[in-house]
């Protein structure tokens, strides 16, 4: 996460505690500290869920709330020697899996209406519909990957995680993540080109 994203955050500067220290305070009963963790991480988490779900902002935001709720509810399972971000993505994956189970038929379905999210978001308005189209195609391609391959790509490209950290989140080895990343990218390229033509 870049520091630019913190620029409009009123908590920055007020609290120099690490995520780990904050979460330990939450665990000890000072649940208000979760607010600062929310400020630091909700965007990245939203991005992860958004790309994993194939670009539905409303559903992703619901899941973001869900992840933070679980972090509160299961705060006692947080261990001091773990990395907060790893733990958060662990829970996020569980929330995601539950969501997919509940909405099996609707899972990873890219809705054309979601284009409005891009255009309305202001990011892409000036770059035109073509680019939005590109991204929509990309989401369709992503949706066709297996969830395992998709999450490796999303975590490495959007969350800018290194293989080592991804391996921690997925409870696997760094080598396995590297192999999966290669396969996923190759597969995505093939699917992407097929949709495009």
């Amino acid at each position: 996460m870049s520091t630019a994203e913190y620029s409009n955050n009123p908590f920055i500067g007020l609290d120099s505690l690490t995520d780990n220290a904050l979460m330990l305070r939450v665990k000890a009963g000072d649940v208000d500290r979760m607010g600062l963790l929310f400020e630091r991480h909700h965007r990245a988490l939203l991005g992860f869920l958004y790309h994993m779900l194939g670009g539905s902002r409303a559903a992703s935001e619901d899941l973001v709330q869900n992840v933070f709720y679980r972090m509160l509810k299961y705060r006692h399972t947080y261990s001091a020697d773990g990395e907060f971000r790893t733990w958060m993505y662990h829970l996020a994956r569980n929330v995601l899996a539950d969501h997919v189970k509940k909405n099996r038929h609707a899972a990873y379905h890219t809705d054309v209406a979601n284009v409005a999210d891009y255009l309305g978001g202001g990011h892409l308005a000036d770059e035109g519909l073509e680019q939005a189209q590109d991204v929509l195609v990309l989401h369709q391609a992503l949706a066709r990957l297996s969830p395992e391959n998709r999450e490796v790509l999303v975590l490495s490209r959007f969350q800018e995680m290194k293989y080592g950290e991804i391996a921690q989140v997925l409870d696997t080895t760094e080598g396995a993540v590297r192999v999966r990343a290669h396969r996923a990218l190759k597969e995505l390229k093939t699917i992407y080109l097929r949709i495009e033509n």
């Binding site: 790309h51 990011h123 991204v135 790509l153 490209r157």
Partner: peptide, 9 residues
């Protein structure tokens, strides 16, 4: 992939 930015919350 890089262009597919996350929407504003």
């Amino acid at each position: 992939l890089g262009k597919a930015t996350t929407p504003e919350p």
